[in-house]
Simulated scan of single mutants.
Amino acid sequence: MPERLDGRVPADWWRPPFSHPRIGAVMTTRSGGVSQPPFDAFNLRAGLGDDPAAVQTNRALLQEIIGRPTRLLSQVHGVAVHLLESVAEPPATPPVADAVVTASSAVACEIQVADCLPVLFAHVGGRAVGAAHAGWRGLAGGVLEATLARVCALADASAGEIECWLGPCIGPTRFEVGADVLLAFGVSPERPGACFHASQPDKWLADLPALARQRLAVAGVQRMHGNNGAPDWCTLSHPQRYFSYRHAPRTGRMAALVWLR
Rank of each mutant, 00 (worst) to 15 (best):
M1P: 00
R4Y: 12
W14I: 01
F18T: 00
S19I: 07
R22W: 10
R22K: 13
I23S: 02
A25I: 05
M27K: 00
T28F: 05
G32D: 11
G33T: 00
S35W: 03
F39A: 01
N43Q: 04
A46R: 13
A46K: 10
D51G: 02
I65C: 04
G67M: 11
L72N: 09
L73G: 01
H82E: 15
L83R: 15
E85G: 08
P94C: 11
A97W: 07
A99K: 08
A106W: 03
V107Q: 09
V113C: 12
P118I: 08
V124D: 06
G125W: 05
A131M: 09
H133G: 04
G135E: 15
L139D: 09
A140D: 08
A155C: 06
D156S: 15
D156A: 15
E161L: 05
E163S: 07
C164I: 08
L166P: 00
G167M: 12
P189R: 11
A194W: 09
S199Q: 13
S199I: 00
P201V: 03
D202G: 00
D202I: 00
K203D: 00
D207S: 13
A210V: 01
V221Q: 04
R223C: 11
R223D: 10
M224K: 02
H225Q: 13
W233D: 04
Y242N: 00
A248K: 08
A248M: 11
A248T: 01
G252Q: 01
M254W: 07
A256N: 00
R261W: 10
